[in-house]
Design a protein around this nucleic acid. Structure first.
Lengths: 165, 165
DNA sequence: ATCAATGCAAACGTTTTGCACTCCC
DNA sequence: GGGAGTGCAAAACGTTTGCATTGAT
């Protein structure tokens, strides 16, 4: 039995609901700031919700330019998503920032394959715990952190799991 | 007895030697690549060795433009320093990359104060250990990682250590 | 109808490149 | 002396801004 770690709650069943909750949060944030949920902003959000993660600005732009969406709007909307804390940036293997929707997702860090670009999410509560402890001891209050590991994923590793191992 | 963790070897005594070793490493790297250790490259290295850490490209440029050094050279040399693995970039609180010389310095991560910009280096072998373990289990081979914590340092913390704790 | 949002183009800041001159090896 | 290195200017790149038009509430 492949016990693939299932870090995140299954959302397949409640996917549509999830999308709606995300949209709601965004709308609330916008309302709070006296801003509007426009078609373009919805579309950008939708792209994230169907891709579900790790899109660069350019990815979003290319997916939506056929709808007449401009780069500027993508930039501005991504900024809004970041501000609202709905989206968060991850450094990709090529150095560019990629975004993912964070709502209701437990905090996780990233393993980034420098070869294929695959981004694996990982949770390690132990590490978070040590982090907090050490920082508290030092009087450093953490606001947020970035913990990214660059390397090769299983498939891209130079030495595939040898027989007999 | 204050057992302040002494993360880095005392270099006060051997500082000059250290500088020379750094220069040697750089020269070796350059030789390997059929490149030359020029006055400008030496000067840039010297800036790092006297500042010892966390300089942005602009910092370096401003410190050296009086010597007639151009921005372009700074960019190119910083790239060389990175390639040679002598220097490594850290994300500063304002988001720009700052560089530090890494030779003979044990690996460390960074606590970055978003208020005063102070960068504190930190070693937590336990975390590194867990990291390695987890990644090995996943078949992910780490090449390098970035672990940066953003927050407020002791001095900039909103609530100074209150009386009676 | 109002006022924010959009999209264009132009501005902007940063990094890279082309090229003649310099200088290290 | 030759080829790499430098510095300038210009190009390239990614992001932001100004402004007239569009559109959501």
């Amino acid at each position: 039995m492949k016990k693939e770690l299932s870090y995140f709650p299954k959302r397949d069943a409640g996917r549509r609901n999830y999308a709606e909750r995300v949209r709601q949060v965004f709308q609330d944030y916008l309302a709070l700031k006296d801003l509007r949920l426009t078609k373009q902003r919805e579309k950008i959000l939708d792209v994230f919700l169907s891709a579900e993660r790790h899109l660069s600005q350019d990815d979003v732009y290319r997916l939506l330019k056929k709808d007449g969406l401009g780069r500027v709007t993508v930039y501005r909307t991504l900024k809004l998503l970041e501000e609202s804390r709905l989206a968060e940036g991850v450094t990709s293997s090529s150095g560019e920032t990629r975004f993912e929707i964070q709502l209701e997702r437990p905090h996780h860090d990233h393993l980034i394959c420098v070869q294929c670009g695959y981004i694996k999410e990982i949770r390690w509560p132990e590490i978070e715990k040590i982090q907090k402890q050490v920082c508290r001891k030092l009087g450093f209050s953490i606001l947020y952190h970035r913990h990214e590991l660059f390397g090769r994923c299983k498939d891209c590793s130079p030495k595939p799991p040898a027989a007999g191992s």
